[in-house]
Amino acid sequence: MESVVEHPRLTRLFRLQWEPAQDAYVLLYPEGMVKLNRSAAEILKRCDGSRPLSEIVAQLESAFGATGLGPDVDAFMAEARQHGWVV
């Protein structure tokens, strides 16, 4: 198990931005682009190194009037770490 940073943030290879032509948030990296779905974008927007994952989950639950998002966010974060998007 790799060590997990307490305050997740995007790795320096990646930049998150809104792309009007894609009508979506995207991750840009050297010579490439990943188009993100809405929930992925909402999570990654909050990965700026300023807050712990627990707070990100709380913010998302409050923003979308939902509960129990923790497991879904955890699953996405595992995937995002796998891709090297976040640390």
Binding site: E19, P20, A21, Q22, V26, L28, E31, G32, M33
Partner: peptide, 8 residues
């Protein structure tokens, strides 16, 4: 404006 995101 056309939608290009990567510039080399």
């Amino acid at each position: 404006d056309l939608g290009a995101a990567q510039l080399g």
